[in-house]
Design a protein around this nucleic acid. Structure first.
Length: 419
DNA sequence: TCTGGGGTCCTAGGACCC
DNA sequence: TCTGGGGTCCTAGGACCC
C-alpha cells in the first residue's frame, strides 16, 4: 500500500498557524510581486477565486468579502514544510518528499488491518505538532492514493484519512471521479479524453490499453494500469539531484535599462550557483533569457535567449556571473520593453570527477575555498551578506505589500504572546 | 498601473556511425 | 527492375506536476 500525505491549502494554512484569528476566514496567498493568487483557503475557493487569478482583477472581490491577503513568504512555508516532513519520517518506515506540501509514505510491511488507524494517527499528530491540517490517502498505487487523499478534502467526516483498498470501493469512487482530476491528466488530455466519451476515471480504465498507449504514450498506459490497481510508479527512497536549476523573475515594471537588468541577471546567476553547490553538482551549460511582456496585446513580443556551453563545468559564482553577464550583453537589445529575465543551468553532473582543462586560467581550488567561505558566511550571518560586485548590494525589491513575518526562522521576528 | 516560478518525462525526426 | 540493417545521440516540442 502507498500513502500520500497532502497538506490542506498549505500556504494559507501556514499563515493561519501564526494568526489563529484567520481560522474560518477566507485567506489567499499571492505570487511574487503580488502578481496572482497561488493559494486559497476553502472559504476563498467558495467565493469563486481561482488559482492564478491576477490580483488586480480580484482585488475588489477580496476586499468586499474581507479576505485576508498575504504576499508569499517562502521562507516560512519552506520551514513549515521541513517540520511536517521530518515528523512524517518518524511515523512511517520511509517517505518520499514529492513537493513542498506532499509526501508519499512507504507502508510496506505494515499490517493492512492497522492502516486506517495509522493514517488517522498521522493526521492527528501532524496537526497537533505543526498546526497544519493534512489529508492522507492510502491505496494500492500512488495514483489511487492521490485520489483517496482528494476524497478526504471532499468529505470532512473521513477525518483526515481515507483508506481505499477493496476493489468494489475503488470502483465506486472511480465511477464518480472526473477524469480531469486524475494525477497526470492535464487540460489537453482531459479535453481529448472527453472527446472520446471518457468522463470519469472509471471510463478511462475501460478503454483498450493499445488505444491508450497510442494516444497518450507509455505515460498514459502507466496511469491506466495504476488506476486498475497495478503499481507502475515506484517509491523513490532517496532524493535525486536536479537536472536543471533555474532562477527567473518577472520585473515590477517593463524596462530596457541594461545596468538594472545586468544586476538582476548577476543575482540570478549567484542564486543558481548556490543551489548548484547545495546539491554538490557542477554545470556544463548556462542559458540566459530575456522576455517582453506577453500580456501586452498589440506590442511586438521578443524572446532573446542564448545557451552557452562551458569548456570546464563549474559551480563558482564568479565564473557563472561572468558568463551570465557576457551572455546578457550578447542578447540585450536597447529599446525593447523587457518584463522578465532568467538564468538556467543545465548539463549538471557530480562535482567529484569533473574533467579539468590543462590550460584552464581559473584556479579551481581557490574558487572552491572562496565559495565555501561565502556560503558559510551567508548561512550563519544572513542571506546576501557577501555578494559579487556585479550583483550589487541594492537588491531589486519585490513588491510584497502583505508579507507576514519569518516566525520560525528569525529570532527578531519570533511570535510574541501578550499576557 | 497591475498577470509567478520551478521542475520532470516522452517522442519523433534528423544526423551520424559502422 | 533492382538500392541493407542496426544502432546512438541530440534537439525541439508537447505533455504533465506542484
Amino acid at each position: 500500500m502507498y500513502g500520500l500525505c497532502d497538506c490542506n491549502n498549505f500556504y494559507a494554512s501556514c499563515e493561519r498557524v501564526f494568526n489563529p484569528s484567520l481560522v474560518g476566514r477566507p485567506v489567499v496567498v499571492l505570487s511574487n510581486n503580488d502578481g496572482c493568487v497561488i493559494a486559497r483557503s476553502n472559504e476563498a475557493k467558495q467565493l469563486g477565486i481561482r488559482m492564478g487569478d491576477p490580483y488586480f482583477k480580484v482585488r475588489d472581490l477580496l476586499r468586499s468579502n474581507r479576505v485576508a491577503v498575504f504576499s508569499s513568504n517562502f521562507i516560512l512555508y519552506g520551514d513549515m514544510s521541513r517540520r511536517v516532513m521530518s515528523l512524517l519520517r518518524r511515523l512511517v518506515p520511509a517517505t518520499e518528499v514529492y513537493s513542498i506540501d506532499e509526501s508519499f509514505l512507504d507502508l510496506r510491511g505494515i499490517d493492512p488491518a492497522t492502516l486506517d488507524a495509522l493514517g488517522h494517527e498521522i493526521a492527528r499528530t501532524v496537526k497537533r505538532h505543526t498546526g497544519i491540517p493534512v489529508s492522507i490517502g492510502i491505496a494500492p498505487t500512488k495514483t489511487l492514493a492521490k485520489i483517496a487523499s482528494k476524497l478526504c478534502k471532499q468529505y470532512p467526516r473521513l477525518d483526515g484519512c481515507c483508506y481505499m483498498h477493496r476493489p468494489q470501493d475503488i470502483e465506486k469512487v472511480l465511477r464518480r471521479f472526473p477524469i480531469g482530476d486524475v494525477w497526470g491528466v492535464g487540460r489537453r488530455w482531459a479535453a481529448m479524453l472527453e472527446g472520446m466519451g471518457v468522463r470519469t476515471a472509471w471510463d478511462f480504465t475501460q478503454l483498450p490499453p493499445e488505444r491508450v498507449r497510442k494516444r497518450m504514450s507509455v505515460v498514459g498506459l502507466r496511469m491506466w494500469k495504476e488506476l486498475r490497481g497495478e503499481p507502475c510508479i515506484g517509491f523513490e527512497q532517496h532524493p535525486v539531484d536536479r537536472k536543471r536549476i533555474a532562477t527567473t523573475r518577472t520585473f515590477e515594471h517593463d524596462t530596457d535599462d541594461f545596468e538594472q537588468i545586468r544586476r538582476c541577471v548577476a543575482q540570478y546567476a549567484a542564486a543558481c550557483a548556490e543551489k548548484l553547490r547545495a546539491q554538490h553538482s557542477v554545470c556544463g551549460e548556462m542559458t540566459v533569457f530575456l522576455l517582453t511582456n506577453r500580456h501586452k496585446e498589440g506590442m511586438p513580443q521578443h524572446c532573446e535567449s542564448h545557451l552557452l556551453k562551458l569548456s570546464v563545468p563549474t559551480d563558482s559564482t564568479l565564473c557563472l556571473t561572468e558568463h551570465a553577464v557576457r551572455t546578457l550583453r550578447m542578447i540585450f537589445r536597447k529599446g525593447r520593453a523587457y518584463k522578465r529575465a532568467g538564468v538556467i543551468l543545465s548539463d549538471l553532473s557530480s562535482k567529484t570527477g569533473t574533467q579539468l582543462d590543462l590550460y584552464d586560467p581559473v584556479d579551481r581550488a581557490r574558487h572552491d575555498q572562496l565559495m565555501q567561505a561565502i556560503d558559510r558566511v551567508n548561512a550563519t550571518m544572513g542571506r546576501h551578506k557577501v555578494v559579487t560586485a556585479a550583483a550589487g548590494t541594492e537588491f531589486f525589491r519585490m513588491h510584497r505589500e502583505h508579507l507576514s513575518k519569518r516566525f520560525t526562522t528569525d529570532w527578531d521576528q519570533i511570535i510574541r504572546v501578550k499576557t
